[in-house]
């Protein structure tokens, strides 16, 4: 009963949030200077032709009308068509599709995204895996020995890691491991091994946040009264940690994961894909930004907020299952 009630309320809330985000991006894209039609058609086209195309595309209608029309489309499952790309064009390629611009034959945004998203998912999954592998042992040990040298060590390691700008780190790793070392492939995509290096960059960016949070929540959980009472009740410390402390520490961690880590991951995914020229959604997005391909930008922004909202709901649901107090 609770779960259903909770889910329903959260999904409604989530839809409102996604709606707000979409509206925000939609408005921003239309009030900032720069006419996409000019980019679409190139600089040599007569103003009258430009106006005609713009009107045909509905770009001259008032923003609320455009937004309403867009939302109706989205609800029907149609994310629109790219301004720039042709249906047969490469999935993330940079140039305009061919010499002639064909209004009727533009690529569907949903297909463009569907073509790139598997790559992004692979990269994100790998990044999370690396992050967990790095941060769990370090964070856990730091939390258990809070204030002692393992804690200090993890603190300094994370201070250093968090100070490495991902754009720089990416290039340095390409130089060291790929160009000089020849250990891992780097630019583009030609098999899953191309995801390793970018995933590593992402993991190094996410790990410090996780390490510190794990350390703090484990240390805080250990401070709880029931832990020391448990000792006097006759429960061994080891069991106390594995069965109770970790369970309690997971709640703030889940929250952090849902809000901060996934948010960071989504953002940095775009940057890292750009650095490595990795053909995922992020590269699609950044190229779309340079080309003012509004439908693509719009759809990806909506998609990423939807991902965040969903992860959040799942995480909260998990947290309320672990700690029943959150249900009351």
């Amino acid at each position: 009963m609770f779960a259903l009630n909770f889910l329903l309320r959260r999904i409604v809330q989530g839809i409102v949030i996604i709606g707000l985000v979409t509206l925000l991006i939609f408005t921003l894209l239309r009030v900032v200077p720069g006419d996409p039609v000019r980019i679409m058609l190139g600089p040599m086209v007569a103003p009258s032709v430009m106006e005609q195309v713009a009107t045909e595309l509905g770009l001259r209608d008032p923003i609320p009308v455009q937004f309403g029309r867009y939302m109706l489309q989205v609800m029907k499952g149609d994310l629109g068509h790219s301004f720039i790309r042709n249906a047969q064009g490469g999935s993330t390629g940079g140039s305009r599709g061919g010499e002639t611009f064909d209004l009727q034959n533009r690529a569907k945004v949903s297909e463009l995204i569907a073509n790139t998203i598997p790559y992004s998912i692979l990269l994100a999954a790998l990044a999370i895996l690396f992050t967990v592998l790095i941060s769990f042992p370090l964070g856990f040990v730091a939390g258990v020995y809070s204030g002692k040298w393992p804690d200090r060590l993890s603190l300094y390691v994370s201070s250093v890691l968090v100070s490495l700008p991902n754009v720089w780190l990416g290039i340095v790793l390409i130089l060291l491991l790929s160009a000089w070392g020849g250990i891992l492939p780097a630019i583009g995509y030609n098999g899953p091994s191309y995801a390793i290096l970018p995933a590593l960059v992402l993991a190094i960016e996410l790990a410090p946040v996780m390490i510190r949070s794990i350390a703090v929540s484990v240390a805080n959980s250990l401070q709880e009264n029931y832990v020391s009472v448990g000792e006097v009740r006759g429960i061994k410390r080891r069991r106390m940690i594995t069965h109770h402390v970790l369970r309690n520490a997971s709640i703030p961690l889940l929250n952090l994961f849902g809000i901060q880590v996934i948010g960071m991951l989504l953002g940095s995914l775009f940057v890292v894909e750009y650095i490595f020229n990795y053909p995922g959604v992020g590269l699609l997005m950044i190229n779309a930004v340079f080309q003012r391909d509004f439908p693509i930008i719009q759809a990806i922004a909506m998609l990423s907020s939807a991902v965040l909202v969903c992860v959040n709901i799942l995480v909260d649901l998990a947290a309320t299952n672990i700690d029943r107090r959150l249900q009351y």
């Binding site: 996604i18 985000v21 991006i25 960071m264 989504l266 953002g267 775009f270 907020s305 965040l308 909202v309």
Partner: peptide, 13 residues
């Protein structure tokens, strides 16, 4: 809502 847009996405947009 604001938090549901990753910084980078907002910024590059």
């Amino acid at each position: 809502a604001q938090m549901a847009i990753p910084v980078i996405i907002l910024a590059i947009t």
